[in-house]
Amino acid sequence: MMSFDTFVAVASGGLALGAIYALMAAGLAAVWTTLGIFNFAHGAFIALGAYIGWQIADAEAAGLGLAAGVVGAFVGLFVIGILFHLALVRPFERRPDIVTACVITTLAGAAICESAINLIWGPRSKQLGQLARGEVDLGVFRLPVSDLVLIAVVGATLGTLGWFLSRTRTGRAMRAVSQNREAAELMGLDVPRLYALAFGLSAAIAGLAGIFVGGLRFMTPTMGTDPLMKALIVVILGGIARFTSPIYAAILVGFVESFSNYYVGLYWTPAVLFAMMIVVLFLKPSGLFGHHQRTL
């Protein structure tokens, strides 16, 4: 039996993990629902975000502080995401086999990004600083401040994204184009621009996630592979009925991972997660919160 303090530590770690996965899955789902393709370079975007953040923030590099690193990773990955879309996805847009073509091009893009990181920053692992230090005493238990900051930043980011999608003109247009491309064209929407924007936003959010992952673990060029796999589990587990459904699934996966690491052991955790995913797919193929209609 675990003590209450341990329980709180494991749970808050799970919530923090879940928050990162939510960020990743939201970005992955944004591209999947609008463009109908799976972006295998999403993990490499996380790595790029972490390295760009490190370049700006770390004392060994530009030394401008972590806040500047967060902004830099977000903006930098937004631009990279749009360029990536123009070069590796747009040329295949009208092809009937776009899904297969983009499996190959986005995998190639991931390899290019990882090699570029190796060339620019070298293979030796780095680490980003924590968002905040210390613990906050809540009377009954204590929580690391960095977890709280992480959860707050992710909450604010996803809240802003939700507001953007439902309340702004461009956001509504993005939701519309994700539901029916032809209807969007019929209604006069600039579909290529909206696709590029969706890709850019998705990459920018991945960049932000990269900063957090880089604060939790050591940074390597392939650091995005594991979070990508978790985000994939999240998206399949949660379904993509609406923008919020991967978020619940992400928190669930974060908790399960955190408790499974403690009880079952680190090496068995992926098996536990995949088993959970397979059971859900058996019982409800569209995902826990899913729907057959794909939409943002």
Partner: peptide, 16 residues
């Protein structure tokens, strides 16, 4: 757009 209301469907067009 199936998940948008009738009026929202038309609003998306007008916003363009």
């Amino acid at each position: 757009f199936p998940s948008l209301s009738a009026v929202d469907n038309v609003i998306v067009a007008i916003e363009q």
